[in-house]
Design a protein around this nucleic acid. Structure first.
Lengths: 200, 200
DNA sequence: TCGAGATGTATCGCGCCGATAGATCGGGGT
DNA sequence: ACCCCGATCTATCGGCGCGATACATCTCGA
């Protein structure tokens, strides 16, 4: 999961750990807060040992314009094998406890995914959300297996969220079949801004 | 997290591992699929070592009516210390990567939580969801830090979900202040059933 | 009768987490 | 001129939860 995200981010150019963490937060802000260093560095080391990334400069002697380069940094660069690995992981997505996050990461790199795989992943995700939805609906329909009102409310809210996600996926799948990307849904005119004044 | 859930479930009576897993799935169906045995058994062992639970019968010699008892089972029972521990964990909830799940588990046991703690947890959760919401709105407002359309769509969807959760929490907080529990919102007459039909 | 599926306990390796430790650097306040 | 604070940057440790897997028994219907 982290591996996929890191390989994807490194497609945009060499970076050091701290920078990777920031880019990760920007790109995956919708699905997770911030990756822990206790995850990041061991993962980088594993990936380096596997040969997906390297900390050697591409052209020795030519020091590229240091983006935020300071001192004693270790700049990671994706290798050819890393790009192959990336393409491979992009197509792999099975059910898991972290399905939510795994789907999100895959989705975030859909612009590097071929259309057929995109469709397969979207339909797979829809299938699993529908199953969860059925489970919750079933539990609620038997009006609480002697469950208290708070638990029931939680399930009701979960059912609603699942419902909403299925509809979202339906739209995406429809667009995908029509061959049109998300079309950058009027991001600026999102109909909900007022609650915080602050800047602007 | 698992510890809290297990202690809570065991308040309803002694159970063996397999049964615990099922009850957990029922109670927490909205927030997670099913707990793995690789989590369950080590956790039970730790809890037993800590003295929160025991596999000794409450009244030696008196074999209580075996609910689903089969063979060679280990029936766990919560101890007095376990109940204290449960009450303690109920009030502890900080931010974390698993905030989502941790909040869900706490919420699922709100009927055993005192009103002041309920309010505090709901408001804390709202604070963090609002922060996430602000972060996403900020990113989207600067119309994509050179983010592709799929990533933007993901963030837009995340923003919408955060928005919706804040509203849900607001309602809960209002009710909570008024001293009225969720009132088992017409669970049976949930106004949305038909959608499976590939979007209308 | 026999086999599939539910019941039931248990372990292994490993990814990821939170906490923590240091070190260097740029810039603002006094 | 100085200092200190927050941002930048790398790194490790203990521990929890996960998926996979193994294995044994019980139940029920074809």
């Amino acid at each position: 999961m982290l591996e996929l995200a890191l390989l994807g981010i490194l497609h945009e150019g060499p970076m050091h750990g701290y920078e990777l963490r920031k880019q990760l937060s920007l790109k995956l802000g919708a699905i997770r807060a911030a990756v822990s260093y206790g995850s990041l560095y061991p993962t980088l080391r594993r990936m380096q040992e596997a040969g997906w990334i390297t900390d050697e400069p591409a052209n020795p002697g030519i020091e590229p314009p240091p983006l935020t380069s300071k001192r004693g940094k270790v700049v990671y660069r994706i290798t050819a094998e890393g790009k192959e690995r990336f393409a491979e992981i992009l197509t792999e997505l099975g059910p898991s406890s972290y399905e939510e996050q795994a789907f999100g990461v895959h989705f975030a790199f859909f612009n590097r995914t071929d259309p057929a795989t995109r469709l397969r992943i979207l339909e797979g995700r829809r299938r699993r959300v529908e199953e969860k939805r059925e489970g919750l609906a079933e539990t609620l329909h038997r009006t609480g297996e002697r469950l208290d009102s708070y638990t029931l409310e939680l399930q009701r809210h979960g059912l609603e969220a699942a419902d909403r996600e299925v509809r979202w996926l339906n739209e995406l799948i429809t667009n995908e079949r029509a061959g049109s990307p998300p079309t950058v849904t009027q991001a600026g005119s999102y109909p909900h801004q007022p609650p915080i004044k602050e800047e602007q």
